[in-house]
Amino acid sequence: MLTYLLRRLARLAPTLLLISAVVFILLRLVPGDPATVLAGQDASPEIVAGIRARLGLDQPVLVQYAVYLKNVLRGDLGQSIRSKQPVLEELAGRLPATLLLGFTSIALAFVLGLALGMTAAVRAGRWPDVALLVFALLGVSAPSFWLGLLLVLLFAVQLGLLPVAGSDSWAHLVLPVATLMPNSLAVFARLSRSTLLEVLGEDFIRTAVAKGARRTQVLWRHAMRNALIPPVTVAGLEFGRLFGGVIAVETIFAWPGAGKALVDAIATRDYPMVQGIVLALALLFALLNLAVDLLNGVIDPRARHA
C-alpha cells in the first residue's frame, strides 16, 4: 500500500510540471500584458517598458519559466503583480472559502445522490424512479447563475429565511451550496441508480437471495458495496467540474473564494496569481483523485492489485 502511495505521489510531479508549463506559456500567448494594465492610461512607452523590466517580463519566456520553477521548488509562488502581496498569502485568504463550498457541496451531493439513486433502483419503473429521472434531468441542465438567482429571490428576498449574499455565518453557506450541488447530485443519483440496478441483476445477488438472506442485508452488504465503486470514482472527477461552476456561484453570492480571484487575475493579467491558483487547484484535484483511488482500494480489494 505504501509503495503504491509513494509511486502515485511520485507520478504527481511530472503532471504538475506539465500543468505549470502549459499555464505559463498560455498566459504569455494571450494578448494584453500586465505592464500596460498597471501603467494606466497616461503612461508613456518608457514607463511601460520600465514596469516590464521590473516584473522581469522583458526576459525570454524560457528564462522567465526557469526562474519561476526555481522559486516554486523553494516554496515561493511569487508576488501578485496587482496587490504586491505573496501569492501564497493571497491563496491562503481565498482557497479555504472555495474548499468549504466545494467539499460541502460534493459531500451532500454524494450522500443525497446515493440515497435517491438507491430509492429509485429498488423501486425501478415506479413513480419514485420516474421522479428521480425528471429531477436528474433538471439538475444536470439548470445553469448555476440562473438557479442561484432564483433561489435567492425565493428564500432570501421573498421568504426572508436566509441572507442574500456574503460569508459571515453558516446560514450564508446554504444558498451557495444549494446552487452548486444539484448538478453533481443528479450525476450521483443517476449513476448509483444504474449501477445498483446492474448489480442487483448479478448472480451473486441471486445466490444471496436464494440462501435466504434478508432483503436489507442483500442490499447493504452485497449490492451497495459493489455499487459504490463507480460513484466514488466519479466523485474525484466531479470535483474538477464543480470548480468550474464555482466561479458563477462565488460571483452571485459574493463568496470570497479562489474562483472569483482567478477570473480577476486573468482579467488584469496578474500572471503569478493565475499560475498560483491554477497550480493549487491542479494539486488539489490530483490529490483528491489519489484519495479516491485509495478509497476504492478499501471498498474493493481487487482494485489494490489492479
Partner: peptide, 18 residues
C-alpha cells in the same frame, strides 16, 4: 465596504435591507 460583483445581488441586498 463589501464586494458584491453581481448587480442583481446588490439589488436584492438593498431590497432586504442588508
Amino acid at each position: 465596504f463589501q464586494f458584491v460583483p453581481e448587480v442583481t445581488t446588490r439589488l436584492f441586498m438593498m431590497q432586504r435591507g442588508q
